[in-house]
Structure formats: structure tokens, C-alpha cells
Amino acid sequence: MANKPTAYNNRLGLKGWVYAGNYTFERYLYIGHRLSGLGLIAYMVLHIIETANRMRGEEAWAALMGLFASPVFKIVEYLLFAAAVFHAMNGVRLLLVELGFFLGKPQEPIFPYKSSVMKHRPLTYIIMLLAGLLMALGGSSLFFK
């Protein structure tokens, strides 16, 4: 008898999205990557709907832009920029890992085990420092003219 397809057994369910286990730093970057990604796609959809407002004419557009010029929206704009920078920089790191860079050469699993995560860790720190620098530079251009 052929097996009927069943639901994927995700033992951890929603908890599996945030549970860091023993992976520490990279796992939190993974959570940040997901959250920033979800935030960015939600914003993108809203942004497309919001920019359609131009079809209602110049006055409607000016009113909307006036709203976006408020300090609250400046902060929201900066948070979006920061999310985009973090997502992009961490995405570069993930691509490098996916393509096998900065992981060291494969070795026999002999105790004491060497973790490829730890070999990759210095690059993780460098990329995150660069992301922080870009966020600071972006903020200085956005807020201090």
C-alpha cells in the first residue's frame, strides 16, 4: 500500500523558529535575518500600495509626504534602512557559507571536534561590524544634514 503524504513533522513547531540551542550568535543572526526579512517584505507591499496614492493627484501626494516628514516616520524610515542593511550584510555571510567559503577544509570527525562555525566566526564579526558602520553612516546622513 502506498504511503499517503502526511504533514511534515516539525517537532518544535513555532518554537523552532526562535530556539537557539547551542548555536548562540549565528542562531540569533538567523532570527534577526528572518524578522528583518518579514519586516521588509511587509513594508514593500505597503510601500507599493502607498505610492499608488500619487494617482489621486498632487494634493493627496503632498499630504502623504507631509506625514512621512514627521519625526516618527523619520525613525521608522531609519529602522527600515537598518533592517535592509542587516538583512543584506547577513545575507552576504549566508551566501558565503552556502557556497562553502570560510568554513575550513572538511576533516575526519575525530574528538576533539573542530567546528566550522567557529572557523567562520571571525568573518561573522567583521560583517556585522561593517553592517553597524553602514547603519551609523546611514543614520548620520538621514538625521544630520
Binding site: 504533514a7 511534515y8 513533522n9 516539525n10 513547531g13 513555532l14 523552532g16 523558529w17 528572518r34 526579512g37 518579514l38 517584505i41
Partner: peptide, 10 residues
């Protein structure tokens, strides 16, 4: 990406 996240649920 959103699809991938949702599809991880059982």
C-alpha cells in the same frame, strides 16, 4: 522567503 518560513510549520 516568506513562503519558506511558513512552510516550515507542520
Amino acid at each position: 522567503g516568506t513562503r519558506g518560513i511558513i512552510r516550515e510549520l507542520p
